[in-house]
């Protein structure tokens, strides 16, 4: 894929926080707490790279993607896209900015309007941004886009329910590509698909990245898929990034105990090797994001936790070039 060393930073995320308020009362709403879905993320995304974001369900991966795209208004922090903090822009300028950043959704059944034809779904971005010429030229552009994602342009007048899951996901990809964006958040784009279709969509995304020079934030919970597609991988736990490095280092030398546990849970298609390796089995459940533990978020389940873990929050630091982790074990 891309060469990381000389890469240019496309997006800089600084201390991003997304809290959802918990309120009580029917008429007078009292603010009684926050769900800390995303709690202070800082990372860069290089132009042309694929940054994988992994973590278990409910750790805030999707919320991160949506907060970056300003689909949620972040509680705090900044998202700097080509030098401009997009968390501060509003209205018409935000709408214009949306041309540059798109999203591919997890559920290809829920993310397409069932009352619109494929042609109208893919043409809508062109229409609302008044690009692609007149109606006839737009229709040609839509047909081209359907071709690009491997759908027969003949289907332009059909409705989403007439397609399979994989085909619908291709419609979603075509819609995201219509505006010729620089950056696409792929929010678990393949987890709702059959395994055989997953490979097709992954390959399509890789081909499109090469062809159009796209940058992806690829959100997933399937480690083998993330390893395949990503240049760098960030591991999330309970609203925070615990480790971030390139894919080779992450698999060869995981620093954070949570990453180690996750990697040891990936099935190996070899019974002998699988029997020999050491599994790290985590005890207990993920704490509630409304009430995270004191100190390190992972201290309640960490097999290597020691005193400081229960007291202070570990700093997210670069331990070796390009290898970031937030763990007291390495903070000496």
């Amino acid at each position: 894929m891309s060469d990381n060393n000389k890469a240019e930073t496309l997006m800089k995320i600084k201390d991003l926080k997304m809290y959802f308020p918990i309120t009580q009362g029917i008429i007078i709403q009292k603010h009684v707490g926050d769900i800390k879905a995303v709690d202070g993320l800082s990372f860069d995304i290089q132009r042309g790279e694929t940054l994988g974001l992994v973590g278990e369900s409910g750790c805030g991966k999707s919320t991160t993607g949506r907060a970056i795209l300003q689909l949620y208004k972040p509680t705090a922090g900044s998202v700097i896209f080509e030098g401009e903090d997009i968390t501060t822009i509003r209205g018409e300028s935000l709408r214009k900015m949306r041309r540059r950043m798109q999203m591919i959704f997890q559920d290809p059944y829920a993310s397409l309007n069932p009352r619109m034809t494929v042609g109208n779904i893919v043409a809508e971005p062109l229409e609302v941004h008044k690009i692609g010429g007149n109606a006839k030229e737009r229709r040609e552009k839509v047909k081209d886009l359907l071709n690009v994602v491997g759908l027969n342009p003949y289907f332009i007048n059909r409705y989403p329910h007439e397609f399979s899951g994989g085909q619908r996901q291709r419609i979603g990809v075509a819609r995201a590509l219509a505006l010729n964006p620089d950056f696409i958040v792929c929010d678990e784009p393949i987890s709702a698909l059959d395994v055989s279709i997953q490979a097709q969509v992954i390959n399509l995304l890789e081909d499109l990245q090469q062809e159009f020079g796209l940058t992806y934030l690829f959100i997933a919970h399937d480690l083998s898929v993330v390893r395949h597609i990503s240049d760098r991988i960030a591991v999330m736990y309970l609203g925070k990034i615990v480790e971030l490095t390139d894919r080779y280092t992450l698999y060869a030398n995981p620093l954070h105990p949570y990453t180690q546990a996750l990697l040891s849970a990936v099935p190996i298609p070899d019974p002998v090797a699988d029997a020999k390796r050491q599994r790290v089995i985590l005890e207990g459940d993920v704490p509630s994001p409304a009430n995270p533990p004191k100190g390190c978020n992972f201290c309640t389940r960490c097999p290597k936790a020691f005193d400081p873990c229960f007291e202070t929050e570990p700093e997210f630091k670069e331990h070796e070039p390009g290898h970031w982790a937030a763990c007291h074990l390495y903070q000496a």
Binding site: R66, L69, L71, L94, R95, K96, R98, R99, M101, Q102, M103, F105, Q106, D107, A110, S111, L112, N113, P114, R115, M116, E124, P125, V128, H129, G172, R175, L179
Partner: peptide, 26 residues
Amino acid sequence: NREFVMAAQAIGVSEWRIAVRHILPN
């Protein structure tokens, strides 16, 4: 709160158009 509405927001569709073209027909 359905995903296709969020998809429309991500594209930059105006609120009025989301209400009339995306939500109302459904």
